[in-house]
Write a protein that binds this DNA or RNA. Structure first.
Lengths: 337, 337
DNA sequence: AAAAATAACCGAAACGTTTTGGAAAAACTC
DNA sequence: GAGTTTTTCCAAAACGTTTCGGTTATTTTT
């Protein structure tokens, strides 16, 4: 593979000059530069990013640590959307992305910091990490710039992106209350997720705001899984037939509840209103189409990349970005009769 | 950041010895090795992959060139699934992935080979490239090991993964014929895709096999887009009401046709049978659920990585991997009445 | 025309590894 | 106890860049 030395030899100049010519320094004669560029093209030279990074001490790469990159993660397009957003901004800023592979077996042998230092990434975006993941502490303690998706951790080098989950949930409750619902249940996700707590808080705050009673046995855990939500939904709805609306902490769980309702012969939305969370692609395609709190996941990814690169360049003061969310009214919600 | 030199100094040995100790060579005393490992841990040493790659001339990274990594690509989860499969196998083999950013603007300044050589990737997996993309020629001509998804290009260093699209389409036609359909139309994708040609060929072969007439004005172009398919579907169905079944070259287009049928008051599957292609997540969730030819996209990704790494290690003779496909019978197909 | 400033170039060190080709010391062999 | 083998270590080169601190030749200034 052609190197800078080859060019130097062919052009009859030093490697210094070649380097400076190719990098647009001013202390090289126009003719020499032209000659060098010509030769570079001829012998199909391309600079070795490894060598360059080694001496320059910067790689223009950012690492991606994503947990949901598994076969199961495909149903909701969240992970993909975020990735797309990240890719978009990084592309524009001329950063490359490296996908860390972190099977759980590997995680035991290599620490987070090792992973990052080895590849000399300048920063990291972390997605889908759980509260109890050992990496989380490392992220906080290391001084490698890092942006987390939906996990509120913040210090000099660490920031995060999230949506206002409290507000999102309140919007849902408010809308259900407007429709006349008073017996509202919630299917929440699992405890290891930060957003679960937030969405529950929003639900409770919303109920309080609307003067509605919060019943703890009407808040159940669906583990963010469609099947699990279907099961717990069925139990809940058969035990408390007076429930007329269910707010789910994810669209996938909302689909589970829809299925449960169908099996029980409960018509949606006539007999049961359902609101989901996320606005995954499926939400608008199922019948009836799912009313939901939409998160702009693409923008979340984009903003994450923006924030991270801002931290890297030290042009960014803040460490948090809040993305708007929006109630999308579709067909699974109706006035209480 | 700690280097091998620091360890050498602290341990009172040469860098050579440190390197050899850490890499498990046998010519280093057990005690010395222990000491070195101890120190390495203490000062949180992690090897600089850049420096190592520079001298070893191998990076253990493979490049990913994916066109569908855009906001639109989110509806079908194909790109994501393939990516997941790739990630799975590469993770197991301890290869890292770098996502090349190739906005079209960037593509003009940097050739494919430049992109790869700069980062010194050992091989590339290319997804979503079109027949007329200038990169395609470069891929073929360069000697960088490369595996393409769904583009049949083959030489010493280039291979591809695909499903048997001819056979898949034939399965669809055969099934429709079994159900008694004779007036079968096809909505195909755009001409820049290899799979379009194959799927059309399979359609025609299938019709021939079943002794059914092929009418060229019953094969129309839906550009792999839902909306476009809806439009052309509507035109087709209103002009030729005798059509009782439509085979679509993608699920997304099938959804478009379903929508068209709905708007025209044509009941699916009672008055119109529809078969899609791909088995995207949406397919099983829409109502009625879509009968389709399923491709195991995860396996495609996995196999692509497998093939590429096989080529890299020179343990792989073949350059092609064919993935099975399968007719999934759901609710959009019914016997002709 | 001497002094000062500028233009164009270059040698060598540095980045953090691995590897080659030994060398010294210790342990065997007979 | 001389020769041989084995063990343990190391100096230096190499990978392909960038950059620092020059030097020489040319041009400008006075």
């Amino acid at each position: 593979m052609a190197t800078i030395k080859d060019i130097a030899k062919l052009a009859g100049v030093s490697v210094t000059t070649v380097s400076r010519a190719l990098n647009g320094y001013s202390d090289v004669n126009a003719k020499t530069r032209q000659k060098i560029e010509q030769i570079a093209k001829e012998i199909e030279y391309s600079p070795n990013a490894l060598a360059r990074s080694l001496v320059m001490k910067q790689t223009r790469t950012i690492g991606l640590l994503v947990s949901g990159l598994s076969r199961e993660g495909a149903k909701d397009n969240i992970v993909f959307d975020v990735l797309t957003g990240i890719n978009e901004y990084c592309g524009a800023q001329d950063y490359d992305l490296v996908l860390f592979n972190t099977t759980s077996s590997k995680q035991k042998e290599k620490t987070y910091a090792q992973l990052c230092r080895e590849r000399r990434v300048e920063g990291v975006i972390v997605q889908g990490i759980k509260k109890d993941d050992p990496y989380l502490i490392e992220i906080f303690e290391s001084n490698i710039p890092c942006v987390l998706i939906d996990v509120p951790v913040e210090n000099e080098t660490t920031g995060y992106i999230t949506t206002d989950n409290v507000d999102g949930s309140m919007k849902a409750v408010r809308y259900l209350a407007e429709l006349g619902h008073t017996n509202i249940a919630m299917i929440n996700g699992h405890d290891q997720a930060f957003v679960s707590k937030e969405r529950r808080k929003g639900f409770e705050l919303g109920m309080l705001e609307q003067g509605l009673p919060i019943r703890n046995d009407w808040i159940v855990n669906g583990e963010y899984a469609e099947l699990k939500a279907e099961q717990v939904g069925q139990e809940l709805l058969s035990e408390y037939p007076e429930i007329s609306a269910v707010f789910c902490a994810s669209d996938l769980m909302a689909l589970g509840v829809m299925r449960a309702a169908k099996q029980m012969g409960k018509k949606v939305p006539e007999e049961l209103s359902i609101i989901g969370y996320d606005d995954i692609t499926l939400a608008s395609y199922v019948t009836p189409a799912l009313t939901t709190i939409a998160q702009d996941t693409f923008r979340m990814g984009y903003a994450a990349a923006e924030l991270l690169i801002g931290i890297l360049k030290q042009t960014e003061e803040s460490r948090v970005r809040l993305i708007e969310n929006e109630l999308k009214i579709r067909e699974t919600t109706k006035e209480k009769t």
